[in-house]
Design a binder for these strands. Sequence first.
DNA 1: GAATTGACATACGAAGTGTATGTGGATTAA
DNA 2: TTAATCCACATACACTTCGTATGTCAATTC
Lengths: 205, 205
Amino acid sequence: MASQNRAEKMEETRRKLIAAGRKAFADKGFAAASMDELTAQAGLTRGALYHNFGDKRGLMAAVVDQIDTAMATKAQAAGQEAGGGWAGLLAEGAAYIEMALEPEVQRIVLLDGPAVLGDPAQWPSQNRCLQATIETLLALEAEGLIKPVDIEALARLLNGVALNAAVWVAASEDAPATLPKALAAFECLASGVLKTAPPPAGETS
Amino acid sequence: MASQNRAEKMEETRRKLIAAGRKAFADKGFAAASMDELTAQAGLTRGALYHNFGDKRGLMAAVVDQIDTAMATKAQAAGQEAGGGWAGLLAEGAAYIEMALEPEVQRIVLLDGPAVLGDPAQWPSQNRCLQATIETLLALEAEGLIKPVDIEALARLLNGVALNAAVWVAASEDAPATLPKALAAFECLASGVLKTAPPPAGETS
DNA sequence: GAATTGACATACGAAGTGTATGTGGATTAA
DNA sequence: TTAATCCACATACACTTCGTATGTCAATTC
């Protein structure tokens, strides 16, 4: 059984390294994570790492992309589930905020990621997520609901607000108590994009 | 002349080390900055560094505090110069956005700072700045101008929006063209805190 | 002016990254 | 089937860097 060919086996080592990277980077942070330990824990050596990912940053990029892509997908799904439009925008933001409560997300994506890989706005995964927000905003604009402001700028800042809210909640002493405050403040700021007062909750468009 | 006593001399070495730290951390980033080079450039050795700041992070903390304190002071001044109130809040945000165009601020405070020192909201300097925003918001609340939302949450997210806008502008290809878009989007989101439409520009309260 | 303190330099050890080279199993071709 | 080749990964090495432990000399104190 399972007579893996070379390509399949290489895929498996990549998966093992990324998984070990997620754990090590989340537990110790990027700088303190030893590639010797990390690879040994995956049953490999640094040789495998440098062959597959080039260097330590390469593994970090792969790890960040995996987590961030999952986040974008989940947020987009939340937005569509809420029926798009204004409610969808809020749901997207709320989904981001809640996801960033996970320590793995906070440490790898929010703290070390930008320092190691540079501005998140340049990451491919973040661009995907940004695109989703832009589309939601364009739909709202088509309905004439929002103010005449540059859409890309709005989308970027909205995502930024959500991430900031998330970091705050995550760092707070009593996260469950802080979460609703953060969500309310997020909705408050987000409503600034609307020409008129937001519709009551539960309305689709 | 200038017969410095020990305390004065020690202050000078601290200043020299912090200055060299600012330059090295801004140019190469925290991780790539060599303490050997850095101290040599200041005409000292690592001995002085570890005696004065404990370790590499200690120097980073001192550098970040210096820059961040200057930012908070400048932003607060901009807010008061604009006459406080709603205009003051916008001026504070705009000041932040413009300051973060400096590469030194971007690299040290916005990228490496959080990764090395942890959540910026916990830094003493950031707390000072946050306090300023909170006071501005409280004044607006006293006038009955803003929605009933947790003030601290609002202040944190507002500062976050400003920082995000700054990072975006700084990373953009054509910063002068992006800046007005970012400022407009910032005003747009900030206006979400108001119960009613914002007063036209130039009004004091 | 002798003793002591302390600010800083020097020397050392431990760890980690990246690269250059080696190796054994899988693939290909005759 | 078997010999040649390839390549994914392991091993070994060179280099840098941090943090500490120890030394030293000038400034203060008695």
